[in-house]
């Protein structure tokens, strides 16, 4: 990416002699110091409607990259995709636009962006296949992942390491068995807290067991000495029942939360591994 950005700046500098010049060196100076907001502001203030297509492409590439660095991924994707096919920045711009869409969970758009790319050689085709495989894995479409992955030449150095990891992720995800909320809820109904331990939240499970057990003992003690009709028995019985029921509900919800956390963690790993080859190829 650094190489491509440098060349974009050089291009702007060269074209500056023929038109009203943006201070390219200054933009570079700001980028080097990570003043991305300032770069975007300056480029948005500049009227380059009459500029040549090549010049517009350079500007859009720099702007898109600045927006990407500011984590404004949606805007970044839009600007990067406006880089034309004639531009030398076409490939890095569109690959990163697709990555931005994938990061935003817009998998369909990400796939379309990649599929519409006009590629120059087999290495780029491998990179596209690898990125597409990652996007399929983000959607947990293992069949599509396999198809796409097999299209990539994983001996191509920039994707070699990431490919191995991606295969591991696919295996982990495919073999992962989702915990059942019904089983967890039933377990917590039989032994309070057991469902949470089953869901992977051991600390919370023990805490729920002790609290429910304590309240159960208190209710039993009052029932044992005063019978059902005593106010204290009814009060503690109600508190116990509320906690007991709430704990079952909480267990069902916590299974969903734990599952979401698991899936999210893998999403982040996949995205990270989709990013590494892009940096390797376009840096």
């Amino acid at each position: 990416m650094r190489y491509w950005l440098t060349s974009a700046f050089i291009f702007l500098l060269v074209t500056a002699f023929s038109q009203e010049p943006p201070s390219t060196g200054f933009l570079r100076h700001l980028m080097d110091r990570e003043y991305y907001k300032e770069v975007v502001y300056l480029l948005e203030q500049t009227d380059y409607d009459d500029a040549s297509l090549a010049r517009k492409d350079s500007i859009n590439y720099i702007k898109g990259w600045s927006l990407y660095s500011m984590k404004a991924l949606q805007r970044s994707a839009g600007v990067l995709k406006s880089v034309s096919r004639e531009s030398p920045y076409y490939l890095p711009a569109h690959f990163f636009a697709a990555y931005n869409h994938a990061h935003l969970g817009q998998y369909g758009t990400a796939g379309q962006t990649l599929d519409s790319l006009r590629l120059e050689n087999s290495n780029m085709a491998s990179l596209r296949a690898f990125e597409n495989a990652g996007i399929a894995l983000l959607q947990r479409d293992y069949k599509a992942f396999e198809d796409r992955f097999n299209q990539a030449d994983t001996s191509y150095y920039p994707i070699k390491k990431a490919s191995d990891k991606m295969l591991d992720f696919a295996r982990d995800l495919e073999s992962h068995r989702k915990k059942s909320p019904v089983v967890a809820g039933a377990m917590s109904a039989i032994v309070p807290g057991a469902g949470k331990i089953y869901a992977g939240q051991t600390g919370e499970g023990i805490s729920a067991f002790l609290t429910a057990g304590g309240l159960g003992f208190v209710t039993w003690e009052n029932y044992h000495k005063n019978g059902w009709k005593d106010v204290k028995t009814l009060l503690f019985g109600a508190v116990f029942a509320a906690f007991y029921g709430g704990n079952i509900y909480g267990t069902v919800v916590s299974v969903e939360i734990t599952e979401n956390e698991f899936q999210k963690a893998y999403d982040n790993k996949i995205l990270f591994n989709l990013h590494i080859p892009l940096r390797n190829v376009f840096n």
Partner: peptide
């Protein structure tokens, strides 16, 4: 002598 009630609540 409500030991559980005394301690827990």
């Amino acid at each position: 002598k409500y030991y559980f009630t005394a301690y827990i609540t």
